[in-house]
């Protein structure tokens, strides 16, 4: 599905990245621990989180996350919005809790992702 579909399904508000609505997304990762995201999330996934600090954007940048969905009606502070803008990472805000957000997207075919990189040792 496209980011536009995601926006519709979640009745979400686009905060950053309105020019990327035709981007295709297939997988998602939901978490409030950035280290957890760093350990598991796959490039090109949606990141569903309740956090809004700038580290969410940094994490998304490091992992090439497709877009961030901020849940539970939270609005990111200006510094987060600015950083997302600078790094071209879309942010959508939805009023739904993470459980409902995941449920709605899962119902429409988005799946979770676990891509653990293994070291050699």
């Amino acid at each position: 599905m496209t980011l536009q579909d995601v926006k519709d399904i979640l009745d979400a508000e686009m905060i950053v990245g309105g020019d990327k609505l035709d981007m295709e997304v297939k997988t998602a990762f939901g978490a409030d621990l950035m280290s957890d995201v760093l350990a598991y999330a796959k490039a090109g996934s949606l990141l569903l989180t309740g956090l809004t600090n700038p580290q969410v954007i940094r994490t998304a940048n490091v992992l090439d996350i497709a877009a961030i969905i901020v849940v539970r009606g939270k609005k990111p502070p200006q510094e987060t919005v600015n950083l997302a803008d600078e790094m071209h990472i879309p942010i959508l805000c939805t009023k739904y809790i993470l459980f409902e957000t995941a449920g709605r997207l899962y119902q429409k075919g988005i799946v979770g992702c676990v891509e653990k990189v293994q070291s050699k040792s």
Binding site: A28, F29, G30, A31, Y40, L48, L98, F99, E100, A102, G103, R104, L105, Y106, Q107, I110, V111, G112, C113, V114
Partner: peptide, 16 residues
Amino acid sequence: EMPGFDVAGKVYNLIK
């Protein structure tokens, strides 16, 4: 064994 996203998705559908 599943990631949280899938667990949430499946539980959501079951409850619905």
